[in-house]
Write a protein that binds this DNA or RNA. Structure first.
Lengths: 194, 194
DNA sequence: TGTACATCAGTGAACGCGCGTTCACTGATGTAC
DNA sequence: TGTACATCAGTGAACGCGCGTTCACTGATGTAC
């Protein structure tokens, strides 16, 4: 092998990382292959040595970006270990997350676009959403029944994603009041009978 | 005036209607001016007699489509007068709405794309979201304080939008179980202390 | 240890296509006489 | 009442541009001798 073992995998990871940020900031269609490669400090021709198509890259972003954004949201929470569902929702529904789609949640930044995508994109998308639901459910009190935990995880994740999507559509002042209301709503919903 | 008074306004409305459906089904960037005009049974050249640009049309869609989709969701509820917030959320979080973005909620279908749009798009977007929040708050029990109503409207709308966005990213079987959970979550959250 | 070689990651020019937009034109209509 | 005209909504060919993708090539590297 004429190149260091890990070289190609590292370059690929750099492309996925650059694409994940650019897509979340500007949308899938607004960011071209050339722009992504420029951000990864490469030239556009090399792209097809790593991916079969732009769609193939989008599928890779869906499979790999959520881990990054969860780490970024955990940092915002100031935590290294997974926190409770309420802590997660509170950090997620923050003005910081609203203002920074490029390092935030993929579903809130690109959900509808990804849902309209090819099977290759939808398959990892469904898997990542289910994974997120399972983890949220697991972070709820073990005194609750599995059915209640599943229900609360579903409702909480819906509030999180919808809260950020809507906040990004509002003016800044309106948005922070709105986010505060959604945080309080989730707090109340998770507190009852607990 | 060589043409009937209402003629041009009617044609314009036909274009906005066709665009609203096509955009919600396939996304803003996936639908061209030519395709929209074809759906409105016109040729693409005539477009610029009605709109200054494609962006201008998107702004018109944001200003005018929500009224249509609210009517369509009210029909799903089987109601002519505005129902309670819980009835609205229940109809919104239905498999039918999930399966039909083209006649459903604009925010759930295009929220992130619109939020990334020009000022001309964002201005009506923020106004329509606030309008939706006000109406939801108004449909809650008058025994609740205005602050609580605002909070519950915010949380409920977040659940609605996030619920549909996420459901559209799941497989069909997973999605209907997920929507059922979100409906139950909203029911519980709106029921307490009421 | 030093050198020639094979490998393959990355380069950059070029392609074909579809898009948003423009514009000279057509023809259906209400109005003036 | 009938006809010539002015208006303007809609037509369709054409434009320039940026995109995803291809491909012949370059050159940095590990290996064989």
């Amino acid at each position: 092998m004429p190149w260091p073992k890990e070289h190609k995998a590292e370059t690929r990871a750099r492309i996925v990382h650059a694409a994940a940020a650019a897509f979340r900031e500007h949308g899938l269609e607004q960011v071209g292959v050339a722009e992504i490669m420029r951000r990864a400090e490469l030239t556009h021709g090399g792209f097809y040595g790593h991916f079969a198509s732009k769609d193939d890259l989008v599928a890779a972003v869906v499979a790999e970006a959520p881990a990054e954004s969860e780490a970024s949201l955990a940092a915002l929470r100031g935590a290294t270990s997974p926190g409770g569902a309420l802590d997660e929702a509170t950090a997620y529904l923050s003005p910081e997350h609203m203002a920074h789609p490029e390092r935030g949640c993929l579903f809130a930044a690109l959900g509808p676009e990804l849902a309209r995508g090819s099977r290759g994109v939808r398959r990892p998308l469904a898997a990542k959403i289910q994974q997120r639901l399972s983890r949220l459910a697991a972070s709820l009190s073990s005194r609750l029944s599995p059915a209640v935990r599943r229900r609360r995880a579903a409702g909480t994740l819906a509030c999180m994603v919808g809260g950020i999507v809507l906040a990004r559509g509002l003016d800044e002042a309106e948005a922070s009041a709105f986010l505060k209301d959604v945080r309080a709503f989730v707090r109340d919903a998770l507190a009852e009978d607990d």
